[in-house]
Design a protein around this nucleic acid. Sequence first.
DNA 1: AGTGGTTATGTTACTGCTAACATTAAGTTG
DNA 2: CAACTTAATGTTAGCAGTAACATAACCACT
Lengths: 350, 350
Amino acid sequence: MRSEQKNITIQHVADRAGVSKMTVSRVLNQDVKVSDKTRAKVMDAVQALNYRPNISARQLAGSKSYFIGLLYDNPSQGYVSQFLLGALKRCRATGYHLVIDQCQGSSQDKVRMTRDFVASTRVDGVILLPPLCDVPEILGTLKQSGTPFVRIAPNADLEASPYVCMDDYQAAYDMTQELIQAGHRDIGFIIGHPNHGTSRLRYQGFLDAMRSNRINCPPEHIEQGYFTYKSGLQAASKLLGLVNRPTAIFASNDDMAAAVTSAAHIHGLGVPEDVSVAGFDDVEIASSLWPPLTTIRQPIAEMAECAIELIRSGKLTSDRTLRRSDYRHLIDFELVRRESVQAIGDACKS
Amino acid sequence: MRSEQKNITIQHVADRAGVSKMTVSRVLNQDVKVSDKTRAKVMDAVQALNYRPNISARQLAGSKSYFIGLLYDNPSQGYVSQFLLGALKRCRATGYHLVIDQCQGSSQDKVRMTRDFVASTRVDGVILLPPLCDVPEILGTLKQSGTPFVRIAPNADLEASPYVCMDDYQAAYDMTQELIQAGHRDIGFIIGHPNHGTSRLRYQGFLDAMRSNRINCPPEHIEQGYFTYKSGLQAASKLLGLVNRPTAIFASNDDMAAAVTSAAHIHGLGVPEDVSVAGFDDVEIASSLWPPLTTIRQPIAEMAECAIELIRSGKLTSDRTLRRSDYRHLIDFELVRRESVQAIGDACKS
DNA sequence: AGTGGTTATGTTACTGCTAACATTAAGTTG
DNA sequence: CAACTTAATGTTAGCAGTAACATAACCACT
């Protein structure tokens, strides 16, 4: 017994407003060819009846489905929920809905799942989260099906589709600059996983910031990590055991930065009194740790909003080749200052 | 240009199989009244044409929408993604789809959002994640709209709807038993946030396990926490500073357990050599920490599967009052043994 | 053979909306 | 002021399925 009050349809609204169904439909779809007077009458009726268009009927009759698909595989926990935050906000504001699915297994499985997904939901477009956005077979499948899609932070094949990302290089540059401005000169750096494209960008940003401040960076201050807590622990132990121990350590992600904090404690060093720590990503651990991490907030939610808009705009649907400038959408990051970084006093550490 | 191959409809399948649309529909909906021969013919045609029913048409014509709503507010990060894992698995297997939305703001906002959500998506049912499942206004709104709903791990108002949860009491009991069996007698416990119903259950499980093993638990071994890393740090510091310092600490969640690990390091104690640590929840931090935490894995994905099945089954739709046994669905937890707990040797600590 | 009772399949009439075309009303011009 | 635009609204015919009823086919049993 779903219907306490029986479903109100466009016909009820039309009757109440004294117009035809079609006019109501036009008002609801922002068609220009409706007089202001009629529009007002219709809107009043919509309000009064608390009418919501039946999305299925719309989809069946029209060309748009008002559904946007979100496919993901296995991004870091929290990434999905962050992304959803922004995506849902935009969807709510525009009357769209998000249908999500996980796409895992062999690349053959992924292809099948992708195909089934677009076929059975008839979404208007698909958003691919990393690392799914770098699976060539999926890109191929989507292209073949004619479904527009946007990728989030892809590492490769940048011409395959429009994509949204942040400027990892600039963020690392800025964070390094921040540490330098706080008086740090001996800065340790822990590189991310060598397979991730972002690792290189972040590393390069760090190096260039050091260089442009004419600060020498000895090779023993650079350690290779793998984005895991454990790898961070090992890297940090080496850095903190050095004779010319750095006064600040910049880790390529928060998990490793958290490990640096633990390593410091083990070495009997306080954070931030003895060593400052900076992370990257602003995942949950960054703020739940004590002291909370100074880090780079990835604008995941904003990236999501941008992706939704791209699909909604319909720009991607048209056959005409997109302009090059339509492909890349850079979203601003944010440097989050928390307690894990402290300025060095006048008393210079020996 | 969405249509590379024009959409195949039920009519095409019917033509190819040499039957009417209705028969195809019956086969697809597992109707019993179809002969095996006809069923085979139809399935062959479906396979050959790679036909997928149009979900909108189904929804419009039929009573089911094949969409299930998932509403959440602000659970711990990772909870949502964990939940999605199970929910999506079940959905995929059954031809359903998940439409998700976030429901935030004042309770008035939440009511409006909930109402809009069910009205515009016409989902077959709604799943409420904690802490949203304890907002009375939302429960009221859903009931009023006649939409069936299932709650996940609710704290209060247990008769309001069917719900799915795990046995927190038993889990805490088992974990305590585990520590005792590893030879620990002096066990510290950090209670969770007093506002959470689960905190009491976990505490009680701990107490009862101690009691049934006739182990005395001095009051100074019990500390109040608030489920945060910081509160765990403070509680652990007190416990580890005691003269009769416990040999094991059981924290009511993983964040606090992680803090215990850090506190131990600060106190110059090794985990697990000097002090064993047990957590609860098995969130990401539990396995990314070093040493990884022995903890209770909340069966979030399984709870999700159960919730989907409940809605899909249609049991909740009927007006007849549900049997009491239909309300509560307990899902088995799992005790995850990792490196943070060690058995105490024969040499008994003084 | 005729009656009744199944069981399997077909028909018809919707579901709520929009595309495409048809019509009316209003404004413009020679 | 009739003819011609143009703007605003109405009509008709689907979209792709399912519910509900109608019918045909088959079988057993008096």
